[in-house]
Amino acid sequence: MLHFRRSSLQIVLMRHGKPKIDTRRRLNASDFGVWVEQYNATGIDAEYPPTRETVAKASQCTFTVCSNLPRSLESARTLGIERIGVCSHMFREMEIPHAAWRFPTLSLQAWLVFFRLAWALGYSANAESFKSAKARARRCAELLASLASTHDTVLFVGHGTLNWFVAGYLRRMGWISADSPPRKYWEHSVFHIRPT
């Protein structure tokens, strides 16, 4: 069977489905670190499935990339993807630091915002540094572009913060998208470039 190359290459950045974990807790910084470990070990909540449009977009892709975190892998299976081309630790979410403080007690969302801001300003206890994470996101973007040059249409079932940085690096590399990076669960954005 003849294979006709697309007029443009395509990368679909998609955020995983909603994780099955309690996000309404109040906790101290030490408990927050435990929560982060639990979050990285949990899968997705079957009560929040992808839309038909999302499943259709995933089915149009010829190659799939996932991180090795359960929420990424389970999302790919929920989308009906039978074969994952790349499953790698490199594509995991950008790590979030945490501390052993026993006080104060804050909402989960407050700790997420606090530690993400602290991380961007240089605090990286129990996590990769901001500089290292950005370098990894650039490598992810480069690998996705390379895979697209071979497979035409690549789906990355990824993570919120990493997708945001990967989208920025893809734009710097000449990829074009009318979409914002995916923020909500199951949301996706499409990047195009003409093959050279």
Rank of each mutant, 00 (worst) to 15 (best):
L2N: 10
R6T: 13
S7Q: 08
L9P: 11
V12Q: 00
L13V: 00
M14W: 02
M14L: 07
R15D: 09
R15C: 03
H16C: 03
G17Y: 08
K18G: 02
V34E: 10
V36R: 02
Q38T: 15
Y39S: 04
Y48S: 01
T51W: 11
T51G: 05
R52H: 14
E53V: 09
V55D: 09
A56H: 03
A56D: 12
K57G: 09
Q60N: 13
Q60P: 13
C61M: 07
F63T: 03
C66P: 05
S67Y: 05
N68F: 01
P70I: 09
S75E: 06
A76V: 08
T78H: 13
T78C: 10
R83A: 15
R83V: 15
C87W: 03
S88W: 07
F91T: 07
E93N: 04
E95W: 06
P97R: 00
H98K: 08
A100F: 13
W101M: 12
R102G: 10
S107A: 10
L108N: 02
Q109L: 10
W111Y: 01
W111H: 01
L112R: 13
A120C: 12
S129T: 15
S129W: 11
S129V: 09
K131P: 12
S132W: 14
K134E: 15
A137L: 05
R139D: 09
A141D: 05
A141I: 03
S146F: 02
A148D: 01
H151W: 10
T153K: 14
V154Y: 01
F156K: 00
V157F: 09
G158D: 10
F165Y: 13
A167W: 15
Y169Q: 14
Y169W: 10
G174N: 00
W175Y: 05
W175S: 09
S177W: 02
H188G: 02
H188K: 06
S189N: 04
F191H: 05
H192Y: 15
